[in-house]
């Protein structure tokens, strides 16, 4: 455990060295917000409705504006780091370290997100609020969002780890990454709220983990009425946990299998 924390701490300090590149987000993100404000104001005005598919104008704008926020909470390089080492045959150090590669990579990912959330999310949220105030936000909903987002990060890490492991089988696994991103966009709520998807798609999506990475955290962020109280939160966390546990087991099994192969085949 303390080794894990130490890796975490060291990663934080490494990322601190590259702090210059974080300032850019403060410029990029508001542009996204402004485009969305104009788009939806015009859309809502033209449609004559206060609500579209359960989203008020403010909520709609903020849904799209907050997608990058969720990205800040979840994205990590585990897939490319793993693939890179697997394809180069450079797993020696990973085998000689008395800390399982899974936890090592998790510490890496967690550290990069801690920095990201502190440096990108909070300041940008503040700036956004000055441009277009999020009238739906309360302390409770924000807090709930944070918990769900953290679980979303862990879930995303599992998925990324699996994608990284595909390098054992595929030489060019950037395609897998791309497919993952598109899936998250369309089936996870990153590109468009799932409420806009056809009925059939919405039903299928219930059985997939993707909506728990973008769509669900965003519902809590927007303080939607069906997320009021504690019960919905517990339900969401439970489902996230189930997915996390299932994928964790799959990850460990796949790794165990392929690392044995790796060790048998000459490394």
């Amino acid at each position: 455990m303390s080794a894990f924390l130490k890796v975490l701490e060291m990663n934080v300090r490494v990322f601190f060295q590259y702090r210059a590149s974080f300032g850019i987000s403060l410029v990029i993100f508001p542009i996204v917000l402004i485009v969305n404000v104009m788009l939806f104001e015009s859309l809502y005005a033209y449609s004559g409705n206060d609500e579209i598919r359960g989203y008020s104008l403010t909520q709609m704008i903020w849904y799209f504006a907050a997608v990058p926020f969720v990205y800040v909470f979840i994205y990590n390089f585990a897939a490319s780091r793993l693939s890179g080492r697997i394809l180069a045959g450079e797993l020696t150090m990973d085998f000689l370290r008395p800390l399982h590669i899974y936890y090592y990579e998790f510490a890496h990912a967690a550290a990069s997100r801690i920095i990201g959330v502190s440096v990108e999310f909070l300041p940008t949220l503040f700036i956004y609020s000055l441009i277009y105030y999020p009238d739906f936000l309360t302390f409770a909903s924000f807090f709930k969002f944070l918990i769900v987002a953290i679980f979303a990060f862990i879930l995303m890490f599992q998925l990324n780890f699996i994608v990284g492991l595909t390098a054992f089988v595929l030489k060019e696994n950037s395609a897998v990454s791309d497919i993952m991103n598109i899936t998250l966009g369309l089936l996870g709520g990153a590109a468009v709220p799932l409420d806009f998807m056809p009925e059939a798609v919405q039903r299928v999506v219930q059985f997939l983990p993707f909506q728990y990475i973008f769509y669900e955290p965003l519902q809590y962020f927007l303080n939607q009425p069906d997320k009021a109280g504690v019960t919905p939160l517990l339900y969401t966390l439970l489902v996230q946990l189930i997915w996390i546990a299932a994928l964790y087991v799959i990850n460990r099994l796949i790794w165990a299998y392929f690392s044995k192969q790796f060790c048998a085949a000459g490394g």
Partner: peptide
């Protein structure tokens, strides 16, 4: 790889139009 890559680039560039279409058709449009 080329075939796979082509399909993926198609899907990728298709996301934005699909999103716009979905939003458009549930409202009065632009």
């Amino acid at each position: 790889n080329f075939i796979a890559g082509t399909l993926i680039s198609l899907l990728n560039s298709g996301v934005a139009p699909i999103v716009q279409y979905l939003i458009f058709t549930t409202t009065n449009g632009y």
